[in-house]
Design a binder for these strands. Sequence first.
DNA 1: CTGAAAGCGCTAACAT
DNA 2: ATGTTAGCGCTTTCAG
Lengths: 343, 343
Amino acid sequence: MAGYRARLKDIAEATGFSANTVSLALRGSPRLPKETRERILEAAERLNYSPNHIARSLVHSTTRTIGLVLTDIMNPTLTLAARTIERELSRAGYAMMFAASDSSVENERLAIELFLSYQVDGMLIYPADHREFGHIEAADRAGTPVLLLVELPGSSLDTVAIDDRIGAYKAFRLLCQQGHRRIAMLDGGRGLGNFDKMHGAQKAIGEAGLSDEALIVFEPEGHAPVHGFAAMRRVMASEPRPTALFASTDSLAVGALHWCRENGLAVPRDFAVIGYDNTEISQYGALPLTTVNYAADEISKIGVYRILQRIERPETCGAPCVTLIEPELVVRASSGSEPGPAR
Amino acid sequence: MAGYRARLKDIAEATGFSANTVSLALRGSPRLPKETRERILEAAERLNYSPNHIARSLVHSTTRTIGLVLTDIMNPTLTLAARTIERELSRAGYAMMFAASDSSVENERLAIELFLSYQVDGMLIYPADHREFGHIEAADRAGTPVLLLVELPGSSLDTVAIDDRIGAYKAFRLLCQQGHRRIAMLDGGRGLGNFDKMHGAQKAIGEAGLSDEALIVFEPEGHAPVHGFAAMRRVMASEPRPTALFASTDSLAVGALHWCRENGLAVPRDFAVIGYDNTEISQYGALPLTTVNYAADEISKIGVYRILQRIERPETCGAPCVTLIEPELVVRASSGSEPGPAR
DNA sequence: CTGAAAGCGCTAACAT
DNA sequence: ATGTTAGCGCTTTCAG
């Protein structure tokens, strides 16, 4: 019993039909008489038959499998994205393979190669780096549809993403309206960093008639709360001292809030904090956090829909296109809620 | 260029060798002269060759793929488990397929069937239900090794899990030592519920010389903070009123803490709260949460090691065995830290 | 050192 | 209504 898997041939021998007939019967072909089909189904059941999808894939050269490459599933928004993507794919009859790049381009490259050799029908990618993406474009060009879940300026790939520029803009606009004149930004820097958020911040600052010095950027050493906590010391040591903070993730913001509490800094009276992502932690921390809603489920759904469209009905798809979802600001206690001048 | 994938045959034609020789060369066979190999590798590179793992799988009847079935990846401990499992598998040269059951046995059954038809070499499963697992055992018996990440009493399957009985025992022991005489337990009940935690609680209560009425169990309607919040109303309405709460997940505990804050209940002075899992939220909430450390990364590593062992060297594996990791209690502010009588 | 042939389990085209 | 044949891309004998 153990270890042996029934094949079509086994059912064929058990019933006296040919493997072909068995195949047709199992797929419910209408041109077989009811009785034949029933005898075959019964034998399949008895032999505990399970179709070999690998063999089928080889014939069809299509696997009904999609690869998902994330930077890090521990990031709560990516967790939600992974959940939604898996759910939508499964609903559509696709399996999902999963790999994490940990924001390393090299790992990303390996993951993509792995998926290609496994013949996935398409890939959804949260890119590891904002500048190096030739290998992603190459995969798409070679015939495996790729959809990005973060905008990559300069790439020619289909994209469904949150408009981070507008998200950061909304956060900074509120802070500026409240009279803040010196605002710190915590962002996981360099090429990995998200220039969109920076640009949104600059736009709001410009509109408020402030100079560039109103914005001061700090680079945390990671994206966990502990890194937000650590960065706050540097933030508060800078001159002139900022009166507000925009953190590029809720986790960083929560760490910053923690620092404020431990150091007797009253939020939002003495210091305002805005996060990004609207993850669960933003509601249940010591102080409800004002944050930008990252609609991970929405981009996931649209993204899955889009890539399946491209796989199953490529003729209906035109040139690659970029869809940006505008995020909403969720105002809670960690920032003032009044747009009027707070100081 | 687009859409065409080079095969061995293409390289063969390009170089004048046979497909067989090409195959040997690409796999670095030593019996080929250096020059032949180099010419073939160069052609492979030029044609942008990527091996077809599906075809190879069909020959080897092994896919180097492992299936992971989780109940819900949004559960932070399962997120960590998924991350660690993926990392360990990838290190060992395996790909991972992922599916979520949402604690539905029917979905679990479908996920397992999916994985079997995709010919995974093994499966790691967080079971959906504590009583219905015949379909899991069947898969294992039919030759696809299965490893459980939660103990299923009565099953005959390899298991690596946290000893929840001891975890709950440690939490209740602390509460009893602090003088609590009426303790509420929040657990996602019925068959899905975890009897181990209940038994651990009962053991501690017995050892403290208390009667069974010292423990009162409530069933939240989900496992998000909002459900913990909602359940607290019922907890505080019960007579006699409990002075402490053990929540079966940190999320529930955080929701309960939130309720305490909104209702002016001082924690831990008037009411003690202990969570379970030691997730990030337990450190960064309003009040640092006493909790039981769920070593998801540890069981994941051991689990991956074990199942690969069974796949690659079955002869070294004996009968199925159950490995239970003893969890530690992490004492923080939400409970008193003194073992002495607090009331 | 290299090639030819068979076959993994399945499906599709073509018989009968 | 059912069977036969060929072939998906690769690896594995077995010959030369």
